[in-house]
Simulated assay, not measured.
Amino acid sequence: MKLSITVGAIAVATASAFSTAFMPSGLRGNSALQMALAPGQTPIVIGLAADSGCGKSTFMRRVTSTFGGDVCGPLGGGFANGGWETNTLVSDIATVICLDDYHLNDRNGRKVSGLTALNTAEQKFDLMYEHVKALKEGKTVMKPIYNHVNGTLDAPEEIEPTPVIIIEGLHPFHDERVRDLIDFSLYLDISPDVKLNWKIQRDMEERGHSLESIMASIEARKPDFDAFIEPQKKYADYVIEVLPTDLDKEDKKTLKVRAIQKKGVPDFSPAYLFDEGSEIEWTPSADKLSSPPPGIKLAYRQEKYFGNDVAVLEMDGNFDNIQELVYVESNIGNSNSRFYGEITQAMLSLADSPGSNNGTGLMQTLAAFAIRELYNKKTAAAKLAANKETAVAA
């Protein structure tokens, strides 16, 4: 009980800070962003690929909050607030760039071309490559803006390099030149059944759309998704796979979530359960991790994925109390947490976000911590190399 109270208290404070952190900077007093790169510092580039409506925004909140520091964004605020529309999130550590900004045509232009935004013919890959390369070299770029409110291509905005550059969207791994600039790549893989259930909940229950129109929308997008989006997951170092539960075949809401972690990636060690390299299925004690029906189960196993050796960490089911997740956390190795209970604290800080009571939030948090650790390792290596050069020059 003492631990639960402590973790909960920390999380409340963290959540309070986080709620103000994502206000535009002008609303948060006079604190200035410290985005300048250290001398000789090379930004690391993280790529995140997923279809629309698959949780990229929630994942980005978990990643940016993990780095801490001063955060503002989105930079615009929308026309209704007297600002401008933007998709870019900026902090003193990370810049998140939405690749929708590299659409070739606006919404009306795609009506003329007859192509969807998923089609690679509708993307400016040359410009995408030039900008990612420039940012990695520490240069400022003028990035276009795709306005999701009215479907227009707006005037470009200036983007300065930060220590971490995250590019997220439909096609971050399609262009080989861009892939070669990425230090760590992730893919959110939502199964068709889960995607349908999510879309029905959002569009039918919340927006009043008919089931027929929802099914038609999914079917219209499917050929381009299969052709242009899904093939990118073979390039990912870390795949979060979201599936229907195996615990009850009639249950349409409970999820099984798998973190498919590629072995042999520089500066990355896959998380494991209990014993690295083993094969484990574990049902946590209900006295320590309470769960509604159909229950909860974790697993860890070794598999092949697109010909690569991977370690798979899996959670099937929901939990009632995020604070109790510290019991699971204590049995996860290579979690990259800085202190006991940090994973649970991070989950509590975003308790109202989708997936915070199941494996979605857990695997996203582990991925965020892995990105932070990769950044720390690459930064330390760069400093060591710089010190050696200074010593040789002296």
Rank of each mutant, 00 (worst) to 15 (best):
A50T: 03
L289R: 03
E342C: 06
G114H: 01
S91C: 11
L273S: 00
D237A: 06
D287C: 08
F228A: 05
R179I: 01
P161M: 09
E230P: 00
V239I: 15
L211S: 11
A236I: 12
W282C: 14
A9C: 06
R301N: 12
P39G: 04
T283D: 09
D267W: 02
V71K: 07
A385L: 13
A271Y: 01
N119Y: 02
Q123P: 02
W282G: 02
A216H: 08
V96H: 03
E342K: 11
S113E: 07
L99R: 06
E212V: 03
S4E: 12
G277I: 01
A36S: 09
M23C: 05
C72E: 14
G82R: 03
H148A: 07
D316W: 04
Q261R: 09
D316V: 00
P231Y: 00
H171C: 01
S291F: 08
T344N: 08
A17C: 06
S269I: 13
G29Q: 05
E281D: 05
V265E: 08
T86D: 12
T64F: 10
I44L: 14
S335I: 10
K199R: 13
T254M: 12
L289H: 07
A236T: 08
Y238E: 01
Q41Y: 04
G76K: 11
S217V: 03
T283I: 15
T64Q: 10
L89V: 12
I260V: 15
L104C: 11
E373A: 15
A155R: 14
D154W: 02
S65V: 12
T120D: 09
I343H: 01
K233Q: 12
L384P: 01
F125D: 11
Q201Y: 10
P354D: 02
P156R: 12
G208I: 10
K378C: 01
K249L: 08
T254Q: 06
E389D: 12
I214P: 05
I200K: 10
I167Y: 00
S65N: 05
T116M: 13
K256C: 13
T14F: 07
A32F: 13
M363F: 06
I229C: 11
M60D: 07
D101F: 00
V7R: 11
G78D: 05
M142Y: 09
K297A: 10
L48C: 09
A11E: 10
S113H: 07
A370L: 03
P39S: 11
G333S: 12
I200V: 15
D180G: 03
L348E: 06
H171F: 00
K288H: 06
S31M: 12
V45R: 00
G53E: 10
L348I: 10
N150M: 05
F67Q: 08
F125N: 15
M128Q: 10
M142H: 10
G55R: 00
L350A: 14
P293Y: 11
A227V: 01
P74K: 07
V71R: 13
G169P: 14
G208Q: 11
L170W: 04
A393E: 13
E281T: 15
L366H: 00
N87Q: 13
P161D: 07
G295L: 06
K383C: 07
M35R: 13
K249W: 05
E160A: 14
R258F: 01
F274E: 07
L48D: 11
L135F: 00
